[in-house]
Design a protein around this nucleic acid. Structure first.
Lengths: 318, 318
DNA sequence: TCAAAAGTGTTATCCTTACACCCATGT
DNA sequence: ACATGGGTGTAAGGATAACACTTTTGA
């Protein structure tokens, strides 16, 4: 018997913006269903590159033009793509879906009037990732379940400790994907039981574990957050999320929103200054609630003048 | 008319090892043809994950077992996959080939007896990337061609300067892929004219530009080198390339081979010491040519005990 | 005894961290 | 006047870069 299996390539976009000091993501949520990422099939006949295809269908689906775009990862595991709508090309064969995830950054969370499309705060899907107000309550809620999973396996326990900052381990904000994968492996993420065709467990922890998404979209979202948090430090990507003119506090809040940790104000500014990444505009923003703040701009011209790294993250210990 | 186009997914592996102080890559080179990477089709019906598929066919093709493996990037541009052998699944339709590149690291460049398979020094494909002996002669050879390409475009000139360390710009060893892409865009890489169906230009520069590979394999190789050079600094990946016991000089030579820059001996050692990444074994290696060196081992157990970063690269200015 | 490579000491400088305090505006 | 956020000075400690020198082997 001939193997009838074929492949369909799906493209998903994690579109990120900053809104009211929070990191938000563009989601598509049909009435009463789980949220998903903007998603579309890649047409091997028509599209010249993945990126062009991605830009085209995100615009079509959300009426939204993408700016900065980068590829994240290609996911091909069998069994983690179950509930995807059939992307059918009409031949009725069993198709294996491969999904290529992309990260896109935009300076404004423009509200689109596209149906079912909405910006959602990142923390909704990963409540335990937000340490801006100190150790999140969600983590305390998950901790017993993690220890339960680790049981008497020293390897499991070590991994849980390291990733979730248990027993005094330091928090490493970059390891979003590894944390999500552990939760999936431990059967704590609702997606895990769903992919196995079982009923959901751990209902009580639902709020602490974060909202699930269709297909493997939450995994792609975790990949995006990991990548972005890492990249902050070695490339000036935050500025892709800022308007032309911004205050230093707004910049700091944006970095904090992405990294999910509180930063030390003066050390953050000193690092900025030393790197000569921004430049004061002389104009003031009076809507700050206190003393008006000077507006700054990113010296984009640096990018073609010299190698330019990202920002250091001087932590504020609470 | 119905679009008959389908997709085939190809997996390629960049398998890296250290041999005689040089970084080498596993290549497949049928008699009289260009070199390529170990490569195979992904079977959507049979393979559960990409990684399993990759391990299986690399072993089949080169009789070689992979250790550390990570995904690099998925390439899907039309027109850069021209000379790939037909991966035919027998339906005769025009298939679009998508290639997923992987990076694999191994501690020993085991010679396999598989036909057409050989280890090749990395510098053979990228002669201008090796700065261990100072600014490489290959760069001086390419420089006029780069300036020629830049012409009177300030953007092109700025990019060339930044990437190829012209006019006093510092060398950034990580940007291997960007450099290769510029050479491709400039029509200097032989692959560029080939993909356009034209005759090769720049024969005179051939040695300085490096040996071309089939399909987009040199692009995948450049991606691998970029990733590996970057990763050196924030993950202890070098140790995946070392045997159980090694001397500190051998470790330094391995790092230098990958990064392509000379390092400052004592500062390199001090950084190692501070990080407590390695541990002396008390045993000596007498085959060093001079005073015997103490053997060390990587404290692998650290990986599950605390977050562990890579090595700093204290440059030795010549 | 000399070449070759291993291994160590020390200083100046810069960056990071961690303090605490003053400034300009709206209410 | 006081609350609110904007913006600054400075000193201690640690990391890095740069210098040159001693040690142990084989030929």
């Amino acid at each position: 018997m001939e193997a009838a299996a074929g492949v369909v390539i799906g493209l998903s976009a994690v579109v990120v913006a900053i809104r009211d000091g929070d990191a938000v993501v563009l989601t598509v949520r049909p009435r009463g269903q789980l949220a998903g990422l903007p998603f579309g099939p890649f047409d091997p006949g028509g599209h010249r590159t993945f990126e062009l295809a991605l830009r085209a269908f995100v615009t079509a689906q959300t009426r939204f033009d993408l700016g900065y775009v980068e590829q994240l990862y290609t996911f091909g595991d069998k069994g983690r793509d179950a509930p995807l709508a059939d992307l059918g090309d009409g031949d009725g064969g069993a198709k294996r879906v491969i999904s290529v995830g992309y990260l896109a950054l935009t300076p404004q969370a423009v509200d689109t009037d596209a149906p079912d499309t909405a910006w959602a705060a990142w923390s909704r899907f990963f409540p335990y990732e937000d340490w801006r107000e100190g150790r999140p309550a969600a983590l305390a809620a998950i901790e017993p379940a993690l220890r339960d999973w680790a049981g008497s396996s020293p390897e499991h326990l070590a991994r849980a400790r390291l990733l979730f900052a248990l027993d005094g381990s330091p928090w490493n904000e970059e390891r979003v994907l590894e944390r999500y994968e552990l939760l999936y492996e431990a059967g704590l993420a609702p997606e895990a039981s769903r992919d196995r065709g079982e009923a959901a467990e751990h209902e009580a922890l639902a709020a602490a574990l974060g909202e699930p998404m269709i297909s493997d979209h939450r995994r792609i979202l975790a990949t995006a957050l990991s990548r972005l948090r890492g990249k902050l430090k070695y490339r000036p990507v935050v500025f892709e999320l800022m308007p032309e003119a911004f205050t230093l506090s707004a910049l700091q809040r944006a970095v904090e929103a992405i990294a999910g940790v509180p930063l030390h104000k003066q050390n953050f500014r000193r690092a900025l200054e030393r790197a000569e990444l921004v430049e004061g505009l002389g104009r003031l923003d009076a809507d700050t609630g206190g003393r008006p703040a000077e507006l700054h701009r990113f010296r984009r011209e640096l990018l073609s003048a010299r190698p330019v790294s990202g920002l250091s993250l001087p932590l504020l210990r609470d």
